[in-house]
Design a protein around this nucleic acid. Structure first.
Lengths: 220, 220, 220, 220
DNA sequence: AATGAATGAGGCTTCATTCAT
DNA sequence: CATGAATGAAGCCTCATTCAT
């Protein structure tokens, strides 16, 4: 949850934050698994407590109610996206940045963003304005970040189209969301790697299109 | 499965089903409104019956259970997409075909496909294999249709990229799904027209990119 | 619930209102028994449903929630008190009127007012303003009725004190409430008759005091 | 049961218990506030601990369970009533004695007897025999005390009725309880003073009636 | 065909009570 | 002595489903 602490916790004996994740995190991890597996509203508080290996009542010491768990989850999602964005910024090329950004949902270590969860989150957004605001906010931040990355990247300058960075970002995000939605249809047995490959295949095709100087590459 | 038709359809080919929508249709219309408004699992059978103006029990005469209503809904969605695809095929240009195809979800007359419903459907697909199969099937058919349209279209030939029709269709559908997901975030007060415009704006940008001969527009 | 209907329903074949008390009444009867036995907040919805011989869910077809059952109960109590008041008005003497009025809570046929219930109602009134209003209203009506009865009764005129009818009513009601509260301490095995006798004994002593012309009776 | 005293009370007889109210008292004070505000069964152990400013667990060090808190509360109530009775005995006239006795519930310093609590106590008595016994005991003692006061008072002798001291006490207590019950209906904003005045007004009317020689006041 | 009363399992939440620290 | 995290039973309420009318 706070990878940042690695920077400061170097000489410390036992960094308890890492080894014993606090209860909220434990519960949110369990909730994410359940939500991804069954959806928000199909997940019972008992499901979460069982997944977390604690009693039902204990959840209520850390969250006011089920709604609050969903909100906290959405909130954490926001923070995670921001972290991913941060990492994406540090990639050497635009393409690599985008690959980091758009495969976070299927290749991160276990209890991270999962496509089913994100699709559910959008579905929820359509009826819960609070969730809608949050998702819009996440999306806005991420889009700004990418827009900026594009504006600064040398590839974008050489492109053959006349779309603005912002328009490009919009297209890129649309394709990413579309592929994430598509991911939902893949049999659950598919490995993370396969999912990731499938996503990248299509996405790469798009940005090759967007950020390639001219027709030359293919038959040059 | 229009039970009515057994009674009336003896001598005549097939007239009354359309004018007097049968109970199943009436129920599915009501269900679509509820599903779009509240989601599958937030919608109670009572909600549907109230929306349809009938009793709860009556729904069970036409559908085995709630699950069956969702399946039938998905099924109808499939048929509707196929109809839209048929209409799309008859458009004079590829661009127009695509516009027909990709705004069905926001500009059709009332109880038709709605973005929240489709997003929910994908979410459902991720946990219900039957729904997943159905959605995959719909998607497959539609993609084949579009692939074919592209293959036959003159614009595609003049394009500056070297993507196959199938790859292009994949990209197009990804963007469409992505924009549909985005639609979910729009305030509910937005009119159908505004939604449609928003969707098309981005989508058009994509195909202008895909189907335009050169940086300098085709007519230069 | 509507004894009044006797007036109109004379020639009818089968007066269904009486023989099959409607569900609300059935539930309220059960609730009264439970409330008297265990108190409002110790009574579970399951207790009520079991006492009524129906399922828990059914209660919710007739009452929005538990609170609503309590309110309806209080409301019915109000109507019952008004009926008792009506009967009391028709008694030949003031004393008899008062006896009717103040023994209703312990001598009526089964699911009627019970002292534990009334005491609980007052306790509830102290924290639920809605209940407080209702109780105040009942009390106000009853006090007005009694004040009027006193004002019109010949006994009151001959009394040796100089208290107004309203002051007398206030005293009478205070004693009645006090004895009702006392009733709460009686072992539950005590019969209705014994309870009634106990109440009357003290109450009679009061009004003999209030409505007797002079000291003469005792040692005349 | 002041465990503290074991530590300090070795040489001295019994001084510190009073100045530093022990934990039990602190808890009971908090409980009284909660019980009066919400009723026994609406009050959670957490409510009490919060009101007392201690942890929940600590309550269990001093009371076996919630039931025991209620019992102890009732017990303390008994002792308090006895204290009041003692003070009442020392008043110069019967009227003054009674005034002391019957306004204890609304004019004492903070965490003392409160009408809502007493009404709840009687309600509880109707279903908990142990509480019933205790209340009966309190009442019996108080009544005996008052009966004795009446028997010894010169006013009682001059009265115009022929009721025995015991019968008079019974009437007086009934009115007092009745007014306490009535107090429950008063808006919570009413000050202690107003409540007290309201109570006394009616009660005084009664004893003026009981202890006045004649229609023409005693001094005519 | 149609109704809607009825059921009861199951979900959310609270709370008395225990116990490791 | 004191804390408050933890448990789990129990209460309120909803809802899919059935069935007599």
């Amino acid at each position: 949850m706070n990878e940042r602490s690695f920077i400061f916790a170097v000489p410390m004996p036992q960094p308890p934050q890492e080894s014993i994740p606090d209860r909220r995190t434990q519960i949110l991890n369990a909730a994410m698994i359940c939500f991804a597996k069954r959806g928000f509203h199909q997940t019972s508080m008992h499901d979460i407590s069982a997944e977390a290996g604690i009693s039902v009542g204990l959840i209520y010491r850390y969250f006011e109610n089920k709604e609050a768990v969903i909100s906290a989850m959405a909130d954490r999602h926001k923070r995670e996206i921001n972290e991913v964005l941060e990492r994406a910024r540090q990639a050497p090329t635009l393409l690599e940045s985008l690959e980091i950004l758009f495969t976070a949902h299927c290749c991160e270590n276990s209890p991270k963003v999962q496509s089913a969860f994100v699709v559910d989150l959008y579905a929820e957004a359509s009826r819960n304005p609070q969730v809608a605001n949050l998702v819009r906010d996440v999306l806005g931040t991420a889009m700004e970040g990418v827009t900026e990355l594009i504006a600064q990247s040398p590839e974008a300058g050489r492109a053959s189209h006349n779309l603005t960075p912002s328009e490009l970002a919009e297209l890129i995000f649309a394709v990413a969301r579309g592929m994430l939605m598509y991911d939902t249809l893949q049999p659950q047995e598919m490995t993370e790697g396969e999912r990731r490959a499938r996503q990248l295949e299509v996405t790469r095709r798009l940005w090759r299109l967007l950020f390639t100087a001219e027709t030359e590459p293919a038959y040059a």
